[in-house]
Design a protein around this nucleic acid. Structure first.
Lengths: 208, 208, 208, 208
DNA sequence: TATGAATGAGAGTTCATTCAT
DNA sequence: CATGAATGAACTCTCATTCAT
């Protein structure tokens, strides 16, 4: 106990973080069910079993809360993809795992992506605070794939095409698979289609 | 001129159609700038230089107007892609033209797709009237590509993979290109990337 | 044909009156079904198979139309009561017939009185044009009964109480019977209760 | 003081009740002056010196507020009549007091009855929530008079006529007195006419 | 005279945000 | 810090009335 006073503020800070997380989880559920405008701050507070005003102690306004929900989820997604892709040394296998992880994450967070794919990144004042972090995370996703592609290129496994153009195409295919699977119920695991995506990406569909 | 009496109602109908189109164009601009909830009916009316109430003579409510903006634009897009793709007998060339037309249409209607790519197909009461036609048009787009793919398969130009899986992947790549190009200003024509998309689609990126 | 030109305007005037009556009848139906505010001018025009604007060629505004519907109906009611009451020389019989006629008229125009008893004489700007004629007609009703009461008083059939106080009481009893019978379906003829009303009015309910 | 913790919620509840009553009184004034449709929620809020939205914290919508104004007033009326009538053991005196109380209550709440007698029980969506309690309260009024009449009948003070028919007639006479006195200004107390009503009710107007 | 499309003021209601407790 | 009642701006939609045809 060198700094007894700081241990108190540590606890304070920890509790604050927990409450913030509590609100984020509640908000995610409510936004997923009702969309940005359909979700009232009051209903989010109720879902979190807090008073309406309390939300504003943790987020300056509704839009910031929405943005935070988004960012945390997308950060989680990118982190998941990254960890999966880094689990191998083979760049092509890394790409395969990255695509599979992307589809898998969609599968695991289906309710959330029902909003994500409808409102990207946020409906209201476009180009506002909400859009701040999300593009950066997308960039990280792109960068990860680029690295893998370039590693494969260095090993002559992939042709010397512009990696910054290829990465989005790979992402776009996975996103479209998700979008198609969106309203469908019951559904097969999207991740199953990762192999097809990679096959196409690597070898194309043309007959030899 | 056989039925001069009908010429009056003909004119009426034509004028009604023109007015409707006028409102749709105004609504497109305002929705593109502000999104569904950010656009007030009053602002749309002002943009169309009409009174607020007039909007309701042509569309039962704001959501129906929004849906109409969407549907007309997407119908136009699919029709454009279809006409471009049908302009050749070679299925592979058809696919190339389809992708190029998709990107080109995005280029030509950039303001609109600022909404489209954010809200797909519609933000508000989810699963309402708005979502009615759009999925059908997407299906038509998919069907068109499937036909071309299957024609190429019959000519042994494309391997016997499931065409209903391949078509969305092709669309998804083009969409992602568009999404990436969204906020960027100034921009190069998206259509320029059609060749890369098709190269990837047909031959993949793997070194031989 | 001394004034051929006037015969033309006669026809004009007659046609104008017919159309006015057509509108009044349509308005009565619609007002009875929906009340003053629930009835739109457009719906009245539709009921009359006319264009909306045409209504305004015959009535300066909706309220005036409503007032006319009212006045005509109440004038008809008073005229009917008067004619029934005058059909006898015996003042007590006249009173009995007046009460019966009042109830009978309610019976015959049930739909109309569903509004009348709810909105008396008109909801909106109270004490406006609408209220103009109706009180005068009520006064005529009161006067009629007063005359009969006073005639009976002159014949020593009714005690020398203030006739201007008695007449409303008689009317009030009949109105209350109507109000009670309002929502009831099916219903016995209200007129059947005229005898009870008069028995009470003349002899009271006290045991002798 | 036994449960200090409950005293907080007690106060809350009390304050809520006071606020509700404040709104009801304001609404009564505004509705009385302008009728249901003429009164805007905004004007009622202004009269209560509250914000518009506050009204909706206490009443789900305008119609519910209107219905509450009605019901509370009529409940008060019937309670008043009942308490007055029960203050004596003599059934005939009870009837006299009931009639007097009815007229007296009209006198005391004149502004309110300007609406009541125009719109009975409620103008708007007819047969909605608004009409729920009022008829029941009217029934209680009728029942009270019936009891008194039947008590008098058992004492041979009133002839064996159907009490359920007589009670409305008594009420109807008092209502008509009120209606006549409605627009008149200045006015004598309506209650003064209670004696005449009862004299007529008991003994009729016929000369012996 | 008749039409009915257009007008635009106005109303009820919601809800993000604030702040006294 | 937490509360939740209060706020009031803003929105969608209606409809009485007008007027060019």
């Amino acid at each position: 106990m060198v700094h007894p006073s700081s241990s108190t503020s540590d606890r304070r800070e920890r509790e604050r973080g927990q409450r913030r997380a509590l609100i984020l989880r509640a908000a995610e559920r409510v936004f997923a069910a009702a969309g940005f405008h359909g979700a009232s701050v009051e209903s989010i507070a109720a879902e979190a079993e807090l008073a309406t005003g309390t939300i504003y102690l943790y987020f300056i306004n509704k839009e910031a809360l929405y943005a935070s929900v988004f960012e945390e989820k997308i950060a989680e997604k990118v982190a998941y993809i990254e960890s999966e892709a880094r689990a191998t040394d083979d760049p092509l296998d890394g790409l395969r795992r990255a695509v599979r992880a992307q589809l898998d994450f969609y599968d695991q967070h289906r309710a959330f992506f029902e909003i994500f794919l409808r409102q990207n990144p946020v409906t209201p004042p476009p180009g506002q605070a909400a859009a701040a972090l999300a593009p950066k995370l997308y960039q990280r996703h792109v960068e990860l794939l680029r690295e893998l592609i370039e590693a494969a290129q260095r090993q002559d496994q992939i042709r010397p095409l512009q990696s910054e153009k290829l990465a989005p195409l790979l992402i776009g295919m996975a996103v479209q698979i998700t979008r198609d699977g969106l309203g469908q119920d019951p559904r097969e695991p999207l991740a199953d289609q990762a192999e097809l995506v990679l096959e196409l990406f690597l070898h194309g569909v043309a007959a030899k």
